[in-house]
């Protein structure tokens, strides 16, 4: 079954979550977090559903979704590669790592490879400055990454 299929079941899970909320006032962001957790991202269909659940104008929901960088409107790749662009990583060469990664995968930060395998995100500080520059793939942290090491990191995930 396709991972991002917008199944009935997922909508029901979201409905149940909203029903369980003690208060709907101000709950939009929490509901969007839940929706993203369930669906993986927030396509229009899901945003509209959230708008109806909370009785909010769709524009309101969209305005919020588009404001926060945590919310994705496009499906993410199977593996999300986060390059930390915190200052500590920046001064230790994170930019070069990011460029190399972009060149390797042929996509820009914020995009997903056509095969849906990888997404790249530039992240603001993982907080592992001692390990700068840091790359995180699906939550696994690679510290003190040197140019040239990127390809082997990617390979690890291609084989899985």
């Amino acid at each position: 079954m396709c991972k991002n299929a917008l199944t009935e079941e997922k909508f029901r899970e979201l409905d149940a979550y909203v029903a369980s909320l003690p208060e709907r006032k101000g709950a939009l962001i929490a509901v969007l977090h839940k929706a993203q957790e369930i669906f993986g991202y927030l396509p229009e269909e899901v945003q509209l559903h959230v708008a109806r659940l909370l009785d909010l104008p769709a524009a309101n929901v969209y305005g919020v979704v588009s404001f926060y960088s945590f919310f994705a409107e496009e499906p993410r790749g199977d593996h999300v590669i986060n390059v930390c662009m915190g200052t500590a990583c920046f001064v230790r060469g994170a930019e070069i790592i990011l460029k190399e990664l972009e060149a390797d995968l042929g996509i820009k930060a914020g995009q997903t490879t056509p095969d849906g395998l990888f997404s790249i995100d530039a992240l603001r500080c993982v907080g592992a400055c001692g390990l700068a520059p840091v790359v995180m793939v699906d939550g696994k942290v690679y510290g003190r990454v040197k140019p040239g090491e990127i390809s082997s990191i990617i390979k690890e995930f291609m084989e899985v």
Binding site: L56, P57, A58, A59, G63
Partner: peptide
């Protein structure tokens, strides 16, 4: 649209220099 008329089709969308006032999506 939102406060006076409560129609609510307009919202600020995106942020920073890309901010725009727009209907949903």
């Amino acid at each position: 649209c939102n406060e006076v008329q409560t129609v609510g089709i307009l919202s600020a969308v995106d942020r920073g220099f890309e901010t725009v006032v727009s209907p949903a999506f």
